[in-house]
């Protein structure tokens, strides 16, 4: 089978003074379909290559990487779709811990900052809270987020202000609760975002939409939050 050329970002803080790109070639078999299959194969030859992975089917959000300059999940990327040398880097904008592993602290901090849980202080009924199919439909395109960080780490506004700008993923999740008819904290949620940085650093550059492996649209969610703020002001 064909050989494929790779160029992979390597850095072990214990032994490398600075990061470097490692070039290598791998022999492919017909069963090597996804980029993750090939990474696992490379690791079998060199066990020091470090990356996160778990589900291998695009639902856990572990293996987001910068692949030939674009963020994506290794497990959903067809190896045959990539031009060579296949260049792999850790997600941009977050501190690198080792090789392809970044420190996600800042990303999750922003997620936690939007109060990512249903707020409803009424005593719950004996049965489920009712919701019409149409109201439930509003959550489609939002609840599917796998927190992979492909979007936020593709967003220039997030690169410059990761501590202040919530970022596309966090904002999409904020809207997931705003849009839920069972949630009672819309005003509190909007207050939480009414700030020159937290929401308004989004300049609709749309990088986030292009890279989302789940085909979600953070920009649309952000737009809807902005609309609600305008509506609330008048």
């Amino acid at each position: 089978m064909a050989k494929v050329k790779f160029s992979i970002y390597r850095f072990d803080p214990e032994k490398d003074e600075k990061p470097y790109m490692q070039n290598l070639e791998v022999e492919l078999e017909p069963s090597d379909r996804k980029l993750l299959d090939v990474l696992v194969k490379i690791k079998a030859l060199d066990d020091s290559l470090s990356f996160r992975r778990s589900c291998r089917e695009g639902v856990c959000g572990s293996d987001a990487l910068n692949i030939n300059g674009t963020n994506g999940l290794a497990c959903l990327t067809d190896i045959s779709s990539l031009s060579q040398p296949i260049t792999l880097r850790p997600l941009p904008g977050l501190p690198v811990v080792r090789d392809l592993i970044v420190d996600m602290t800042q990303f999750f901090k922003q997620y936690h900052s939007i109060k990512p849980y249903l707020i409803n202080d009424e005593p719950p009924p004996e049965t489920e809270r009712l919701q019409s199919p149409e109201d439930r439909e509003e959550l489609n395109g939002l609840y599917e987020c796998i927190l992979c960080a492909c979007c936020s780490t593709a967003c220039p506004s997030f690169w410059w202000n990761p501590d202040k700008f919530v970022g596309p993923s966090g904002l999409l999740n904020a809207y997931r609760f705003i849009a839920d008819t069972r949630d009672q904290a819309i005003n509190e949620r909007l207050d939480n975002l009414e700030d020159p940085y937290r929401l308004f650093r989004c300049h609709t550059i749309m990088n986030c939409v292009e890279v989302c492996p789940k085909h979600l649209n953070p920009t649309r969610a952000i737009g809807k939050i902005k609309d609600l703020m305008v509506k609330r002001a008048i």
Binding site: Y117, E128, L130
Partner: peptide, 19 residues
């Protein structure tokens, strides 16, 4: 399951609004 719904789980719905 009802508890889970109260936590915010986005179950699909029937026309009756139930899970």
């Amino acid at each position: 399951v009802i508890e889970l719904e109260h936590y915010g789980m986005p179950f699909d719905r029937l026309d009756s609004g139930k899970i």
